[in-house]
């Protein structure tokens, strides 16, 4: 079956995405040198989330997909976050 309206990412745009990801990696390694106390994990996770979003949108071509799939992917992450929160309603108050 022929792919109608193909979306093709250019080599250079993919290379730029990689550069951003490598920079973020370096940044997260560098920033662990500082001590934010309880926030260390939060900072590391925020950077990780940014990286994951970058991969999803660019490498996995989510930017070319329909709205429904975008919502689904977001929804899956939201569901998982809710599961974590609900579990911690137990652990946090125990």
């Amino acid at each position: 079956m022929k792919h109608e309206d193909k979306h093709i990412s250019s080599y250079s745009s993919l290379a730029i995405v990689l550069a951003v990801l490598l920079f973020l990696t370096a940044f997260s390694v560098w920033i662990t040198g500082f001590h934010f106390g309880a926030f260390t994990v939060a900072v590391a996770l925020i950077i990780a989330c940014v990286k994951v979003a970058t991969v999803l949108i660019n490498f996995m071509h989510l930017k070319f997909e329909n709205l429904f799939l975008k919502l689904l992917v977001t929804g899956v992450f939201v569901m998982f976050t809710l599961v974590i929160i609900l579990t911690f309603v137990d652990y946090y108050f125990r």
Partner: peptide, 23 residues
């Protein structure tokens, strides 16, 4: 296959700070 491979990458992006960077 590329999508699957990106997922392997995604998981690692989370694993890396959680296991290696919390010193």
């Amino acid at each position: 296959s590329a999508l699957y491979w990106h997922l392997v990458d995604l998981i690692w992006i989370f694993l890396f700070p959680l296991l290696y960077l919390i010193t």
